[in-house]
Amino acid sequence: METNTMELKYASLDARIVLTEQEEKELTEQVQKFLDMAAPMKKINLANIKPTYYGFTRQNNLRKDEVKPSLPLETSLANAPDADDSCFHVPKIVED
């Protein structure tokens, strides 16, 4: 399987990442090399095997559904790059 540049561009767009031309070139080569290495695994017939999504053999341990204190507003906002005393600030949704 060969990966084309457009596929990588869309993938980086989905990840909200802009790759430089050099990074795009390097990644294309890396992906190709990886897919070649993964080819033997891809060929194994696993049609009758169920996928495992968690290496976890027990049920989730859920705590009681009780209201507990949450982080104070001031603490929640403390790490924000741009905020006032009650809200996160973001740039405009639509460009001028």
């Binding site: 990966t3 596929e7 993938a11 790759l19 695994m41 891809k42 194994i44 095997i49 495992t52």
Partner: peptide
């Protein structure tokens, strides 16, 4: 950035079945 883009690529329809699902079955 390259690793995350790779993860994004493998999640797409063209790769999901042959690689991601195959890995979960493996």
């Amino acid at each position: 950035k390259k690793f995350l883009t790779f993860g994004s690529l493998i999640s797409t329809a063209n790769y999901y079945h042959d690689y991601f699902l195959q890995s979960q079955k493996m």
